[in-house]
Amino acid sequence: MASAYYEFYRGSSIGMALTDSLDELITSGSITPQLAMKVLQQFDKSLADTMVKMVKTKTTLRGHLHTYRLCDDVWTFIVKHPSFKMESNEVVSAPRIKIIACKNGDAIEPGKK
């Protein structure tokens, strides 16, 4: 219990939607910040577990690496003109993309590291 999961998914679309909704409820006084924290922790866990369980797709990515950074076991890359090849041969590109990657495929577990 209380295994820690990465929290950075909170910055994703779904994570931000949740955070915003929680903030609204806190502002309106319907819930306490502590409860909101619990919700977010649960979100971290649910999202991580669901992704591992349900997502099986593979992707490849190419591009020009513009910036790379490693700090505290977190890699941050800025790639210019990335091109993602999704499973169905669907190619997606953008002028620039940032990649934030934490260590390992697993969540951090207490006691580890």
């Binding site: 994703s12 797709t57 992707t59 591009g63 020009h64 690496l65 890359f77």
Partner: peptide, 18 residues
């Protein structure tokens, strides 16, 4: 979780070459 061009994509594994 990829957010690009306003859309989200998910992957279990991605190999990147830069």
């Amino acid at each position: 979780m990829i957010h690009i061009n306003g859309k989200d994509y998910l992957f279990a594994r991605c190999t990147g070459e830069f």
